[in-house]
């Protein structure tokens, strides 16, 4: 199958854009796992709630949806803190399976709660920049995607600054590296749990806004597929490794496109898991993962 270089580059660009959503989700999952050693399988539902919050605010105010990022992110931050406090903290330290079961309950709760509040119909909005494009050489790149990629980079840089340059970031990293030692040195680890979960939810909320802005349709069940991909990326990239999440995200984009071409579109989801299983059979902690937890 002959594909010229231009086409290939174009497909890579689409992958990069789709990767933004995955990377934001995967970074959130990683942050939460790093600090709490907990996996929230309902992470995709936070993406969905982020999308609906943006949509609701847009319908109410009619503001430029990019500006609504400023409103959606704090809402999801608080929501995440509430979910951590009410649902995850009580089971923290009990059997690990409990967290998985709890997440399943949350998936049912959030998906159908959203269907009750916002209805189960598909929704979509159009960005004010929908018809604008940037021309680079022979490419016509839609302006929205350029903005989305820039916003994602901005968020990731901001997160790195938060983690590396602030006292809060230091405390988060300390909790993530050694919980007991962090506790002994006076860090309130329970508060760190809440903040980490809140930040993870906020990242998912940002991804939700970007999803809506790019003109993609959404419904209460939209979160599960991107979330599953994000988890696969996290496992592939290694738990707790943020560079791993980014490389994993890009790798997945390529693997999915390759599978769509060679095996057919039906394999797009399955290929994620085949890669995942192969990796785990060879290296049970993922490609970049630290040994043990």
């Amino acid at each position: 199958m002959a594909i010229d270089v231009g086409t290939l580059l174009q497909i890579l660009f689409w992958g990069l854009y789709a990767g933004c959503i995955y990377i934001l989700l995967a970074t959130g999952v990683n942050l939460i796992f790093g600090v709490m050693k907990t996996v929230n399988f309902a992470h995709g539902e936070l993406l969905m709630i982020g999308a609906y919050v943006t949509w609701t605010l847009f319908s109410l105010t009619g503001l430029n949806p990019y500006l609504l990022l400023v409103a959606t992110v704090p809402v999801l931050l608080l929501f995440g803190i509430a979910v951590q406090r009410l649902a995850f903290r009580p089971v923290l330290g009990s059997h690990k399976l409990n967290e998985i079961f709890l997440s399943i309950g949350l998936i049912y709760l959030f998906q159908n709660g959203a269907a009750m509040i916002w209805g189960s119909d598909y929704q979509s909005i159009q960005s004010p920049f929908a018809s604008m494009a940037v021309t680079i050489g022979s490419f016509r790149l839609p302006l929205d995607y350029v903005i989305i990629i820039a916003v994602t980079i901005g968020i990731l840089v901001g997160l790195q600054l938060l983690l590396r340059r602030t006292r809060l970031g230091l405390a988060l990293r300390a909790t993530s590296q050694n919980r007991k030692a962090a506790m002994l040195s006076g860090i309130n680890v329970e508060r760190m749990d809440m903040i980490a979960f809140g930040l993870g939810a906020a990242l998912a909320g940002a991804a939700g806004t970007l999803w809506v802005v790019s003109g993609q349709v959404f419904d209460p069940y939209m979160g599960s597929v991107p979330a599953v991909k994000a988890f696969a990326i996290v496992i592939l990239g290694g738990l707790g490794s943020i560079p791993g999440a980014i490389i994993g995200g890009l790798f997945y984009g390529v693997a999915e496109s390759a599978a769509t071409y060679t095996l057919g579109g039906a394999w797009k989801d399955a290929i994620s898991f085949i890669v995942l299983i192969v990796v785990l059979v060879i290296r049970p902690t993922g490609l970049f993962g630290e040994r043990g937890e």
């Binding site: 594909i3 497909i11 993609q216 597929v225 769509t260 071409y261």
Partner: peptide, 20 residues
């Protein structure tokens, strides 16, 4: 004739290949 998975939202890769 290209197939995709039910509920797909990102068709750019498929469309690029169709365009070719």
């Amino acid at each position: 004739s290209e197939s995709y998975k039910m509920g797909e939202t990102d068709f750019r890769a498929i469309l690029t290949s169709v365009k070719a």
